[in-house]
């Protein structure tokens, strides 16, 4: 009886989902959406795309118009990493011992793949203003590469102090760039570099610089969290 009810419920829900996706007003085909319905119309009519210079609208909003909120967002991540470090962090730490050694292919292969993953994440970070992606996903991929090495090499220990320094430098530079905007133009985090041609690598003023800093900061913070979870107090 329970199974029959479950089957009926899933069939009805499935029918609803299919109908909702077929409803062309709510879910238009690819490329046919009228963006002016959804985003503020001002964004298009005032020609702001050329003003910001970012080919990716999401990036223009996240880093350009809402740059200060993004600073807050990065701070939230920093605070959570700090919380994890306070809970798990002791003075002397050693590597958590997993029951079995990683097998040979994993150990050698992950080193080959580590460089590939890192360079891909850096590509994603640098092209945040041109393609979907940017600092947050790129930083997460850096951290996942570090997690991969942790899981496949039972003696690996990342350079935690280096990560902390990198994170501090990136965070401070973010604020410094914001203050430069305040000094050189009028307000905090305002763009003071030329916008350039939309679609070029060197365009969109300070947006790529800030996104690189965000990527470094996010990557080092999540790597720190990974390190905290995979280490334990020295049992000596």
């Amino acid at each position: 009886m329970k199974n029959l009810f479950g089957l009926l419920l899933s069939l009805v829900l499935g029918a609803f989902i299919i109908l909702a996706l077929n409803n062309t007003a709510a879910f238009p085909a690819f490329g046919e959406v009228d963006l002016a319905d959804r985003v503020s119309e001002q964004y298009f009519t005032d020609g702001n795309v050329a003003e910001v210079g970012s080919a990716n609208i999401v990036t223009a909003i996240v880093v350009g118009y809402r740059g200060f909120d993004t600073l807050g967002e990065v701070t939230v991540l920093f605070i959570s990493a700090l919380g994890v470090a306070i809970i798990f962090g002791e003075k002397k730490q050693e590597r958590l011992d997993l029951k079995f050694k990683p097998n040979f292919m994993l150990r050698v292969g992950s080193r080959v793949l580590f460089g590939m993953i890192l360079i891909t994440s850096i590509y994603i970070i640098f092209h945040g203003h041109l393609t979907p992606g940017g600092g947050f996903p790129g930083g997460a991929i850096i951290a996942s590469a570090v997690l991969l090495l942790y899981l496949t090499d039972d003696r690996f220990r990342s350079n935690v102090k280096g990560f902390k320094i990198l994170e501090g430098i990136a965070g401070s530079l973010f604020v410094v760039i914001g203050l430069l905007g305040l000094v050189l133009v009028t307000s905090f985090l305002q763009n003071f570099l030329p916008a350039g041609t939309v679609g070029d690598l060197l365009s969109a003023g300070i947006i790529p610089i800030i996104y690189v800093l965000i990527g470094l900061k996010v990557g080092s913070e999540i790597s720190g969290i990974v390190d905290n979870f995979l280490t334990e107090e020295e049992s000596a």
């Binding site: 990683p102 097998n103 292919m105 994993l106 292969g109 080959v112 793949l113």
Partner: peptide, 10 residues
């Protein structure tokens, strides 16, 4: 080609 055999062996 690199990752798939490694994953399956893991």
């Amino acid at each position: 080609i690199i990752s798939n055999p490694i994953g399956s062996s893991a």
